[in-house]
């Protein structure tokens, strides 16, 4: 059961990272087009609107993958001195706290998205609705929170500690 859920979560994580990666390459293209265009007196209309909103996808798109790869930084100074049970408790607490934080971000940002719709908020030049990008941020946060919940559950069910951080 947990294994199947984890495959689902892995799929969602990959999808989010894929969108983030596409977003990053889009940023490069948009800024280059704007810079070259401006040199010839025709900058890209709303370039800053597009790049700032795409940035949301880049930043939160990679969040779940980052967590899966153990990319969130912790102070490991005292780890060697810790008994095994304390390290395990720390791992579970981290996963649970992370899940609470990311579900919390998703919930509060969705509340803000409702407010954005009420206030009719959009970007200044080409009117990209703010609520769209807040929703994207919330969805990516939910995916991240799900991954953490699953890790907490599998740790509680007795699975071994996660592997060492990735190497590049």
């Amino acid at each position: 059961m947990l294994a199947r859920l984890d495959r689902w979560a892995a799929g969602l994580t990959s999808l989010a990272a894929l969108l983030g990666t596409l977003g990053l390459l889009t940023e490069v293209v948009i800024i280059l087009v704007d810079v070259v265009g401006r040199y010839f007196g025709a900058p890209l209309r709303g370039a800053q609107d597009i790049t700032t909103m795409t940035m949301v996808i880049v930043v939160f798109g990679g969040m779940s993958l980052c967590d899966r790869l153990g990319g969130h930084i912790a102070v490991d100074l005292f780890e060697p001195a810790m008994p095994a049970w304390l390290r395990r408790a720390g791992d579970i607490a981290t996963a649970l706290l992370g899940a609470v934080i990311f579900f919390g971000i998703a919930w509060t940002v969705m509340e803000s998205a409702a407010l954005s719709r009420m206030l009719n908020l959009s970007t200044n030049i080409i009117q990209l609705p703010k609520a769209w990008f807040q929703t994207v941020l919330a969805v990516f946060s939910v995916i991240t929170g799900l991954g953490m919940t699953l890790r907490a559950l599998s740790l509680l069910a007795g699975s071994p500690r996660p592997a060492e951080p990735r190497s590049e």
Binding site: T52, V59, T108, S112
Partner: peptide, 18 residues
């Protein structure tokens, strides 16, 4: 909760942090 939402979105969409 207001700050959690606004700081997350503001920094993730900051034109300087691109």
């Amino acid at each position: 909760t207001g700050l959690l939402a606004s700081e997350s979105f503001t920094l993730a969409s900051s034109s300087e942090l691109i």
